[in-house]
Structures are given as structure tokens and as C-alpha cells.
Design a protein around this nucleic acid. Structure first.
Length: 434
RNA sequence: GUCCCCGUCGUCUAGGCUGGCCCAGGACACCGGGCUUUCAAUCCGGAAACGGGGGUUCGAAUCCCCCCGGGGACACCA
């Protein structure tokens, strides 16, 4: 095989959605697997719909996913090249001028066969086609034409794109033919659908790649998830980037469309949160503590590093996103914790006394380790003649703001005896007042 | 409407080219149980699919035909 050259060619009319991201990923993986070149080409020939922000967003999305490009082009900067090819078509009699535009003459009978690497041989009846505009009356090229010219000029070997482009392929094939060029190989990827089995779009909820970043999805999880949408490698579900590069090829791509299942994305995300080294994850969590308004930079800085790491380690098994994890971490910071609705019933008046006693005991503790705190709590409970079971859940609710979470003594160690004592003391006061 | 594509558990899929190893395997989700101060993790178990009908064959998820269903494309958008 010639040295592989592929491109991802989005039109900058909006954010990068997951369908586009998957197309970009498959191109990137194909290039990296074959030691080829991955090109980013912005198809902005429609100047009325293209925006600079969209270009920025697309690049930011690709960077976040870790899909680096080797070459970059913009179609609007290549109009002279397109024009040149249009003149050539005119000269050859394959195109003509009408209504101020340049039109390409499509054959009116016979069949055109597209030999697709994924879909196989697909036949199109030529009578289905009408002549097509290749240069608009303002002189700018249209998609099918610019695409052929640029793919040729850039030496593209494989066009890997969404299935919605399959019907464009015979048109492009005829342009190649009229120009006397050998077309690249084509591979059309089955669509990604929403839960209602129609093409994934805004009405299905989050579809922008950057939205998933904001939701606390890790790029590793997103890449892993997207790769498994339409591609498989035996029974393996979790892949590192290196594994994807090693195993990815077009023969692993299926022919049927796939439904975007957010549940599986969330599962993969937790898998990846658990695989990430703790210090790395912690940095991300800290970003989300700020983004979510859970804590201020000063408050975050005030938490000892080992406590922070331990918290992240304990919370990540219970969170599916960075956002969830950040909210769980609220207990680490000073301030009121709302009693959750399902915790209200646990706070019975007779707990005021034990809470107060334990608050005082905790206040004396120097050693912040879970073991030391456990010893203190158990001693105090023995003095009060109460079993742990009688106070564990209510205490957890008061100290952490939730009836679920890590072990009670771990929670106390994370929150710290002083803050825990303060919360218990306040709860006791409230209970006494009724 | 016309053309094209697709059709294995709810979802992602393995298997299909080279029929028997598949009364269909894995994963997510779901249900039940163990563990535990709670939840999660984890472990054990469960329910769940070859769209339908005809062929071909000793034998079909796999090959052929028809039907049904779903989706996509039909711009001086990409």
C-alpha cells in the first residue's frame, strides 16, 4: 500500500459533534496504524455558514481528544486551485457555463459502481443524477468539486467519511474520470444514531464533544467509547490509545449503524477514572471543583495533598464523571452541608447527646488516621453504651452530607476531626432545638 | 416520491467471506444473592437476540429469493 494519507474534513458551521469526532478518530487511527499522515482540512467554502469560532471549537475538540493533525488546510485559501481545475474541465468539455455558474456534465445513462471498503460494491443508476454546479456564480467551489480537487492535490489515499456521503461518491467518481485522475479508496462509516434510531442530532441531548468534556468525561473514555461505536476487536471493551492504534483497521468496522448509548460511556468513564494515576486525576478533579463552584482556589490549596489524593481514590469508585466526583468532595471543605432528603429521618432527637459527646472526643484527637479516629469513636461509644450501628449512618449524614460514601472512619479522616466535630456539634444543637 | 444502505439480547457487538466447534459468546444496562457501619467496588447467579416466510443442504445466524421493518441521500449545504 502507498503511504497512507487521510483527512478529516469538517465544515465549520457549528461545534464538533460525536459523529464527526468518530469520523476524525477513525481517520486518525487509520493514519497512525499505518504510519501515515492525518490531515485536517476545513471545508469552509460556504462562507455564509462558516465561522471562525466553529474552527476554533473543532480544533479544541480534536486537541482534547488527542487527535493531532500533521497538515492543516482551509479550502477558502485554495480557490485559485479550484478555479484552475474548473477551467480544465471547461476546456475538456466536461463542464459548461450557465446562469453564471459552472456546471459539471453528469452521464445520463448506465451505472456507476462505487467499490467501498466497508459497504462493498454499490451500484447507482446514472439517470438519477442531474448536472451539478461546481463553481457558484460568485466563483466559489461547491463541496463535491472542491473535495475532489483537494483530495487529489493532497494525495489522499483513503477517504474515510460518514455514510451520508455515499450518494456523493458516484458524482465525485465522474469528476475524477473527467479529469483523468485515479480516485482514492473510499470507506463509508455507518451512522451514529440516537436512542430513537434516527441520525444523532441536538434533539437527542448532548452531542457536542466539548459538552462531554464539561460533563466530566475523560478524553480516554470518549475515545474508547467512540472507537467501539462501529468497530470491534474480538471481545475487548477497554482500550488504551496505544492498543487502538495497534489494532485498528477498516476490516474491524461493521456495516450497520449504531446507537449512542450514554450508559456505556459513563461506565467507560469510571473505568478510565480508575485507571488514571491518582495525581493526574486529582488535578482534573481540582479543575472541576472550581468549575462546579464547590470550592475556592484557597480552600482547595488548604487541603493537604495526601488527603486530597486519598479522597479522589475513595470517591472515584462511586462517581461516573468528574462532575459527580467534585460534588462528592464538597464534604472536604468548610461550610454547611445540607441534610439530604433521605437523611432527614435518621436525625432523631435522642442523638443530640451522643453527637455532642463524640464532637468533644473528636476535638481532642491529634492523629487524623482512620485507625486513630476509629479507636476514639469506639471508645466513646462504649462509654455511651451504644452500638456503632446506632450512630454510624446518622453520623455519616451529618459529617459528609450524604448517607452513602466511603467507610465512616475514612470519611472522618478525610473531613478531619475538627471539621467533623464542628458539624456534629451543630447538628446536636439543632436537634436540641427541635 | 426516487435512489441507496442496514436488520444477532433494550444497547454496543463476536460469529457470517471459508455452512456443522452457536439449542448463539462477551460487554453496558437490568433483576436476585454474598460481602459491608451505608453506598460503590468486587464475587456468584438470572432474564434477554439470529425481523418474517420460502428455498438450497444430511445440516443455516451463516448461501439464494421474496416480504417486512428501520435509516440515509436527493441544494449555486457540506
Amino acid at each position: 500500500m502507498d503511504k497512507v494519507r487521510v483527512r478529516f474534513a469538517p465544515s465549520p458551521t457549528g461545534y464538533l459533534h460525536v459523529g464527526g469526532a468518530r469520523t476524525a478518530l477513525f481517520n486518525w487511527l487509520f493514519a497512525r496504524h499505518h504510519g501515515g499522515t492525518f490531515i485536517l482540512r476545513i471545508e469552509d467554502t460556504d462562507r455564509t455558514r462558516s465561522t471562525e469560532e466553529a474552527i476554533e471549537q473543532i480544533m479544541a475538540s480534536l486537541r482534547w481528544l488527542g487527535l493531532d493533525w500533521d497538515e492543516f488546510y482551509r479550502q477558502t485559501e485554495r480557490f485559485d486551485i479550484h478555479q484552475h481545475y474548473a477551467e480544465e474541465l471547461l476546456r475538456r468539455g466536461a463542464a459548461y457555463e450557465a446562469d453564471g455558474a459552472v456546471w459539471f456534465r453528469m452521464p445520463k445513462d448506465g451505472v456507476t459502481v462505487v467499490d467501498d471498503l466497508i459497504a462493498g460494491k454499490v451500484e447507482f443508476q446514472n439517470r438519477e443524477f442531474k448536472d451539478l454546479v461546481i463553481l457558484r456564480s460568485d466563483g466559489t467551489p461547491t463541496y463535491n468539486f472542491a473535495c475532489v480537487v483537494d483530495d487529489t492535490e493532497m494525495g489522499i489515499t483513503h477517504v474515510i467519511r460518514g455514510d451520508e456521503h455515499l450518494p456523493n461518491t458516484p458524482k465525485q467518481l465522474h469528476i475524477y474520470r473527467a479529469l483523468g485522475l485515479t480516485p482514492p479508496k473510499f470507506a463509508h462509516l455507518p451512522l451514529i444514531l440516537g436512542p430513537d434510531r434516527t441520525k444523532l442530532s441536538k434533539r437527542h441531548g448532548a452531542v457536542s464533544v466539548l459538552e462531554y468534556r464539561r460533563k466530566g468525561i475523560l478524553p480516554e473514555a470518549m475515545v474508547n467509547f467512540l472507537a467501539r461505536l462501529g468497530w470491534s476487536h474480538g471481545d475487548q471493551e477497554v482500550f488504551t490509545r496505544e492498543e487502538l492504534i495497534r489494532y485498528f483497521d477498516l476490516d474491524g468496522v461493521g456495516q450497520s449503524p449504531s446507537v449512542f448509548d450514554e450508559q456505556k460511556l459513563l461506565w467507560l468513564n469510571r473505568e478510565w477514572m480508575r485507571r488514571l494515576p491518582v495525581p493526574e486525576l486529582t488535578k482534573l478533579v481540582q479543575e472541576f471543583l472550581l468549575l462546579e463552584g464547590v470550592a475556592s482556589p484557597e480552600q482547595i490549596a488548604a487541603i493537604p495533598e495526601d488527603i486530597m489524593h486519598r479522597a479522589v481514590e475513595l470517591f472515584r469508585d462511586r462517581s461516573r464523571t468528574l462532575v459527580e466526583l467534585a460534588h462528592t468532595a464538597r464534604m472536604l471543605f468548610p461550610g454547611e452541608l445540607a441534610v439530604p432528603p433521605d437523611g432527614q429521618e435518621l436525625l432523631r432527637p435522642e442523638l443530640a447527646e451522643p453527637f455532642e459527646v463524640m464532637a468533644q472526643a473528636l476535638d481532642q484527637v491529634r492523629d487524623r488516621s482512620p485507625a486513630a479516629l476509629e479507636a476514639t469513636i469506639r471508645e466513646t461509644l462504649a462509654r455511651l453504651d451504644l452500638p456503632l450501628k446506632a450512630v454510624a449512618l446518622p453520623m455519616r449524614v451529618v459529617v459528609s452530607g450524604s448517607r452513602v460514601g466511603p467507610g465512616l472512619f475514612e470519611v472522618l479522616a478525610l473531613v478531619g476531626p475538627r471539621l467533623a466535630a464542628e458539624r456534629l456539634h451543630r447538628a446536636a444543637e439543632k436537634l436540641r432545638k427541635g
